[in-house]
Design a binder for these strands. Structure first.
Lengths: 187, 187
DNA sequence: ACATTTGTTGAGTGATTAGTCAATTTAAAA
DNA sequence: TTTTAAATTGACTAATCACTCAACAAATGT
């Protein structure tokens, strides 16, 4: 029974259900089934909890979307894998996914650049794309822009499929959307 | 000096800058340059203010993206116009745009379906797309899914262009992104 | 001119919240 | 076993917040 973990999970659930502004720390500890005080044993402040939760989920996400990348040889295949990895993580972790989205759209003083693990994965992605541009596998394009478009597209589609699960022939959508996106990336 | 309007504008700014959870009503009235009490003359509660702000901006947005639609005859041209209208509204109203995004990604008990004006515009859009599917101008696709993908893509790109204005050859991006999306829509 | 409504103020209130802390339990080390 | 350290509790506090209200000002109608 790792109470720290219980707190983080309870927080994720409540933040997504009610929003940051309507989730007191007392509700979090109650949901986690622990005392009110222990929250401040593991986290200095409420903001600190939000921060740590966000960073840990972001790490979870980036680690997962880069999984098995070395098993693919084709350069294009690598982007394609990242594409479906992101998609699958989103569909398999709807709560975590919604929490990340929520924070990404709120001013929340979380500085991701302080976390070397994240910066490293981020650079890995950037370098990979740059290499693909250099070798003319994809067209000349601002990489940040590409990244945001890509995740923006995935995000909105995953959000929709999570809301309307009856639609889910997941893999079909992944494939179709990928084709659209690759059409855009082609030189 | 419409104090109601001043309050809404101040609220938009502060909500975007600090987030809902870190913006007390006192800060809003201070930013607006009015007394603390008057906020509750114009809005029953803080949530009520958030609600009214959101609905009014959503109306502003939908009204604008459907503007001049009757001046275009080509069916495809109509979607294309909605595309660039959305894009332009986002770029021209960055604060309002970010606020809408923020609420859309937070659980906030705002019920848009209570507002006939919004429902009407929403149906207008849906019917237009359905007609285009029927006349084989675009492919068979779940309309809600199409809508979310479309606005998801626009959203992420607008967000990026707002953050990095140096990139902005706006119209080029609008055109390129539209081509990608149309490629997806083609039967 | 007066009366009536509407807009505006800001000090005040009760409720809620983040965060503390002394006391107690549990676990680990010696 | 004894000692020491770490985890856990929940009542408590100080601060903050949403919201009220009595008093006043401005506008509007008669």
């Amino acid at each position: 029974m790792d109470k720290r973990k219980l707190l983080l999970e309870a927080a994720t659930k409540l933040f997504v259900e009610r929003g940051l502004h309507a989730t007191p720390t007392s509700a979090i500890s109650k949901e986690a089934g622990v005392s009110a005080g222990i929250l401040f044993h593991y986290f200095k402040t409420k903001d600190d909890l939000i921060n740590e939760l966000y960073v840990s989920l972001k790490k979870d996400f980036t680690a997962n979307i880069l999984a098995d990348l070395d098993k693919i040889n084709s350069k294009l295949g690598k982007i394609r894998l990242i594409w479906s990895n992101s998609w699958n993580w989103g569909l398999n972790n709807p709560l975590k996914f919604k929490f990340l989205l929520q924070i990404d759209h709120t001013s929340c003083s979380v500085n991701l650049k302080e976390h070397p693990e994240l910066v490293e994965n981020f650079n890995l992605f950037i370098n990979m794309i740059q290499d693909q541009i250099d070798t003319k596998i994809i067209k000349e394009i601002d990489i940040q822009f590409l990244m945001n478009s890509m995740f923006g597209l995935i995000t909105s589609m995953v959000k929709h499929l999570t809301e309307f699960p009856e639609l889910r022939q997941d893999q079909v959508f992944i494939e179709q959307a990928w084709e659209m996106f690759y059409n855009y990336l082609k030189p």
